[in-house]
Amino acid sequence: MTTGRGVMMDCKRILLAVDTSENSMRAIEYVAQMLGGGCGGEVELLHIVRLPERDMYPDEEAFDAKLCEQEEESHAFLDKARDILLDGGFTDEAVTERQLCITAPSIAQHILRIQKEGGFGTIVVGRRGVSKAEEFLFGSVSSKVVHYAKNCSVWVVG
């Protein structure tokens, strides 16, 4: 499928945007169950890590320790996610991983940028467990992705 701007969108290319939450794990399991049995699709696991504010730590050592902790948690989660997708029937070549560290506040904008650049036909996100009040005040990543996505389908798994 080609969009109006000539960018090729591939319906079998899935961008699976995850954090380390239970809802992300459910989204991974859902994709593995629904599409893993030899559909010929490709999945890119995208974990966007928001870097901690440097001012929140008393010294560089504490800040660096937090960065290492986040990196280890991210790698462990992505390894587990990959295993679930492979167990679900995806081939090793069909599953890629990308970790992006950001300081800017909008995770949704980064997801949408990567979707557009990579020509992904589907974005899959887990519904984050924020309260209605928090969602009203700050929005949620999944709500923003659904609202602003163009030329692709969006699956929100809860």
Score class of each variant (00 low, 15 high):
103 T>L: 10
104 A>D: 06
104 A>I: 09
104 A>F: 01
105 P>I: 13
105 P>R: 13
105 P>N: 13
107 I>T: 13
107 I>H: 05
107 I>P: 08
108 A>K: 09
109 Q>L: 10
109 Q>Y: 04
111 I>N: 10
111 I>R: 11
112 L>D: 07
112 L>P: 14
113 R>L: 13
113 R>W: 06
113 R>S: 14
113 R>Y: 07
113 R>F: 04
114 I>R: 13
118 G>M: 07
118 G>I: 07
120 F>L: 04
120 F>I: 09
120 F>G: 10
120 F>H: 14
121 G>I: 01
121 G>P: 05
122 T>H: 06
123 I>H: 05
123 I>G: 07
123 I>Q: 05
124 V>P: 00
129 G>K: 10
129 G>S: 01
130 V>H: 10
131 S>L: 11
132 K>I: 13
134 E>G: 03
136 F>G: 13
136 F>W: 13
137 L>N: 02
138 F>R: 10
138 F>K: 15
139 G>D: 01
139 G>A: 06
139 G>E: 04
139 G>T: 08
140 S>T: 08
142 S>F: 08
143 S>H: 09
143 S>T: 11
144 K>M: 12
144 K>E: 14
144 K>F: 05
145 V>M: 09
145 V>D: 12
146 V>D: 02
147 H>V: 11
147 H>K: 15
148 Y>F: 10
148 Y>W: 04
